[in-house]
């Protein structure tokens, strides 16, 4: 019963957050100077006025806002200004799979690199293994994706020829962009894992386990892991937000026609419906993931489970 209430209240909060994001984006976009049709193409004033009227941009802002929210509620995102003949939903449907693929791939790489590396470093605290792993992680954090990406493209794409250095043609084309993202977040996750595991490994109950004759391996994975990766789980929400901004960069480097590129183009061209549509899409994605992360946290931690039940 209380569980349901908790979920419902979280759902309410999420909807509120979504509403706020859309509203803020709408007004920031519309109150800014300039518009979609008064750029350097020097469109005659009367044509510009006609186009604005066609898209409803001549009406007072509150009216436009209410109309937009109304359309949104019926699932209508409108048409893109910049991509003539395409609705916003179509543009998103084209770009999102690419962005999601490299984002998800990046997350998988990050977890696959970060968790083992961090656990290894924690279990060999203050040894060469630890210093080596953490120096590597520090490098991963300090070398930005837009340096790593080109290097990977040169090495694996051009030198070794294993992958395409550019574009989205083959089923393996997600690997290099994802690896670029994965190295950065993997380095971060390695540090979080090490910190979390060290915190747990210093607890009295680990000593209890050792006194019971539990092996080092089982102490790490049977006793410490569940508590030790809580910082990583907490980081998943912010990591997703980071992966999204990371995908802007990576799509630029590897020339991918993903959602990030559409968003940046939309922002530079004042393509209001597309801006709002992509922001809405990102926000729903992030809010959903955060909600799942919350549930995962509760599932991992029996004390939280008790507190929320």
């Amino acid at each position: 019963m209380d569980q349901t209430r908790y979920i419902l209240s979280r759902l309410g909060q999420s909807l509120l957050a979504l509403f706020c994001i859309i509203t803020i984006t709408f007004f920031i976009a519309r109150l800014a100077p300039g518009g979609p049709f008064n750029d350097d193409k020097a469109v005659p004033a009367h044509i510009q006025a006609k186009m604005e009227a066609y898209y409803g941009l001549d009406k007072p802002l509150p009216v436009q806002y209410i109309k937009y929210i109304g359309n949104l509620l019926t699932g209508d995102f409108g048409s893109s200004f910049g991509n003539k003949g395409f609705t916003v939903a179509e543009v998103i449907a084209q770009g999102a799979p690419i962005s999601l693929a490299i984002g998800l791939g990046g997350l998988l790489f990050a977890l696959a690199i970060g968790i083992p590396l961090g656990t290894l470093a924690a279990s060999r605290k203050n040894t060469k293994t630890d210093y080596f792993s953490m120096s590597f992680a520090m490098l991963g954090i300090c070398i930005p994706t837009f340096v790593v990406g080109p290097l990977l493209a040169i090495f694996f794409g051009l030198r070794l020829g294993w992958f395409n250095a550019w574009g989205w043609f083959q089923p393996t084309d997600w690997i290099l962009p994802s690896l670029t993202l994965g190295i950065y977040y993997g380095a971060y996750i390695a540090r979080l894992t090490r910190g979390g595991m060290l915190e747990i490994l210093g607890q009295d109950y680990i000593r209890t386990a050792r006194a019971k004759g539990v092996s080092q391996f089982n102490i790490l994975f049977g006793h410490a892991f569940r508590g030790g990766i809580i910082p990583v789980v907490n980081f998943l929400g912010p990591a997703l937000a980071g992966l999204i901004s990371g995908s802007f960069v990576v799509e630029t480097i590897f020339g991918l026609d993903g959602l990030g590129q559409h968003f940046i183009t939309a922002a530079t061209n004042r393509d209001y419906p597309l801006i709002l549509g992509t922001v809405f899409f990102y926000a729903v994605l992030i809010i959903t993931v955060n909600f799942l992360v919350d549930l995962l946290q509760v599932w991992l931690n029996p004390r939280l489970r008790a507190a929320r039940a």
Binding site: Y205, T208, R226, L300, P302, R303
Partner: peptide, 8 residues
């Protein structure tokens, strides 16, 4: 209070 593993 601290010697039993809270996660198990």
């Amino acid at each position: 209070m601290t010697c039993l593993n809270p996660f198990l």
